[in-house]
Design a protein around this nucleic acid. Sequence first.
DNA 1: GATATACTAAGGTTTTTACCTTAGTGAGTG
DNA 2: CACTCACTAAGGTAAAAACCTTAGTATATC
Lengths: 111, 111
Amino acid sequence: MVASAATVDGVFRALSDPTRRDVIARLTRRPASVSALAEPFDMALPSLMQHLGVLESSGLVRSTKTGRVRTYRLVPKRLQVAEHWLAAQRDLWERRMDQFESFANSMESEQ
Amino acid sequence: MVASAATVDGVFRALSDPTRRDVIARLTRRPASVSALAEPFDMALPSLMQHLGVLESSGLVRSTKTGRVRTYRLVPKRLQVAEHWLAAQRDLWERRMDQFESFANSMESEQ
DNA sequence: GATATACTAAGGTTTTTACCTTAGTGAGTG
DNA sequence: CACTCACTAAGGTAAAAACCTTAGTATATC
């Protein structure tokens, strides 16, 4: 389950904006309509909708329209794309630290 | 240990580019000079250096110069800024699932 | 059926990004 | 001390991002 570079790009890019992270954080709690999501921001509605577009095209969020209300919900699986990439780096880093430690230990035991 | 929005922005932004993620991945293994980092890319050196600048100003990476060689190394702690944000979302999401489950269970037991 | 509500479409501006080229500078090397 | 090597400085271009305003278009509601 290795996400393509473009997918990872999109996810990290989407998360690099504080407005969008705030939207994600709120959708983590519950689904919400466009206007509910827009309410706390001092921003024109179309601007916020652009952010929603970025989130949706990154796959972090999905929306459906019922009547005149469009409801957004989180796609938690998509957050894993970022989590996995970070976990892979951590793993490598820890291996490196282990190597370094065993090297340091072998130096010590040779004295 | 809550990172400021600007800090989180910078980290996610830095990770949103495949060239920069590749640099990070390589620095996770070992420190490297500018030219070593640039070598695999089909990109003019100054362009790659711009990426290194972005990484360094996000705090994900640190550099020191010895003689004419500048060496870059990872700052693994900075990756945690992203990990922590994601973990917080996962935590909230899981709480929500728990609530949903206990709600579903209580519905069931009322039948 | 008029009015309000919840988006959506279109298009404009400013800033930032991601590249480039060309031209240095300072540190090693023969 | 000329030359190469590893960066660095400066500045230029094209595309994308993040806002905005203004003007729709469907649903609901009275």
